[in-house]
């Protein structure tokens, strides 16, 4: 797809629902928008069924607002809370079987490369912590070992949130959830470190409490994955429903965790990725 295709046939202009006319007139396709442009255009996700105060919903909104080329992006999702929002997102997206997302994305990326050899088609995996660090860890890591040119984004709400609140590998040690009443017995999986060791050339852990840093990390990860290697972004997206805090306290909760050192925000850029980014970002506005 190219943004040039986003034209409504004149004969049917009058019957197209307003949502589509708005997407054509003021959507983000081909515009190169960033976080600071939010509120000035029709967004890719405007309605969703996620809970009030959901850190994941906010992270998703921010993520979608900084895609370098939404018209040439395919999101591969997996079972989890985020999958409930994707049917409403105005992007190509594929829902894969639970845990299969990186395997599906690998095949998709290769097929798109064959079909559109002269074009960048960004394949971005957006999945929860259960799909990324538990059920799909094999597929995730194998895709990194193979050096697949895809971006993996984990929305880390530290639990299996839409199935009643079971602990995941990303739940912090001691976490008590509705279906984990005895408290988690082992440490949170150190996914950023695993990603780096497994071959990701760009790794970041960010949160919606700092939207500009989140935007920059997503953009960098997608750009680097076009040519240099696999990339990984972990977004801390706390869940008020399962961790029993008020919906309006999500950002406060992130800041507290960051402050007490139980959730580390970080960025790793390999030398090759650094070189590539220096060329890409040179002379452009830093998001």
């Amino acid at each position: 797809m190219s943004k040039d295709f986003l034209r409504i046939s004149p004969a049917f202009e009058d019957v197209m629902p307003a949502e589509y006319r708005e997407l054509v007139a003021s959507g983000p396709y081909g515009k190169g928008y960033g976080i600071s442009d939010l509120g000035s255009h029709k967004e890719l996700l405007e309605e969703h069924p996620l809970c009030a105060g959901c850190g994941l919903a906010l992270s998703l909104r921010l993520t979608l607002s900084v895609l370098p080329a939404p018209e040439d992006t395919v999101i591969v999702g997996s079972t989890g809370c985020s999958a409930l929002a994707f049917p409403q997102v105005a992007l190509h997206n594929i829902h894969s079987l639970f845990g299969n997302q990186n395997a599906v994305a690998s095949g998709l990326k290769r097929a798109l490369k064959l079909r559109f050899p002269d074009k960048h088609k960004d394949v971005v995996v957006v999945a929860g912590d259960g799909a990324t660090a538990d059920i799909g860890l094999d597929m995730v890591m194998q895709s990194w070992f193979r050096g697949e040119l895809i971006t993996t984004i984990m929305l880390d709400n530290e639990a299996y949130a839409n199935t009643g609140g079971q602990e995941s590998g990303m739940s912090p040690k001691g976490a008590v959830l509705y279906m984990a009443p005895k408290g988690k017995k082992f440490q949170k999986v150190n996914m950023p470190e695993l990603a780096r060791e497994a071959g990701c050339v760009y790794v970041a852990a960010v949160s919606p409490a700092n939207p500009k840093r989140l935007g920059k990390a997503i953009k960098r990860a997608i750009l680097v994955a076009r040519e240099v290697g696999p990339t990984y972004v972990q977004i801390f997206a706390p869940c008020p429903t399962n961790f029993k805090f008020k919906p309006q306290e999500t950002i406060k909760r992130i800041k507290e965790r960051e402050k007490d050192g139980t959730y580390l925000m970080r960025e790793y850029i390999s030398p090759e990725a650094q070189e590539y980014l220096a060329a890409m970002e040179g002379g452009t506005k830093d998001e």
Binding site: F5, L6, R7, I8, S9, P10, A11, F12, M16
Partner: peptide
């Protein structure tokens, strides 16, 4: 395939 004017001839067919 008809609603979006994505290739030559589509607009005419839509009409």
């Amino acid at each position: 395939q008809l609603l979006w004017d994505w290739k030559e001839g589509v607009a005419l067919k839509a009409q």
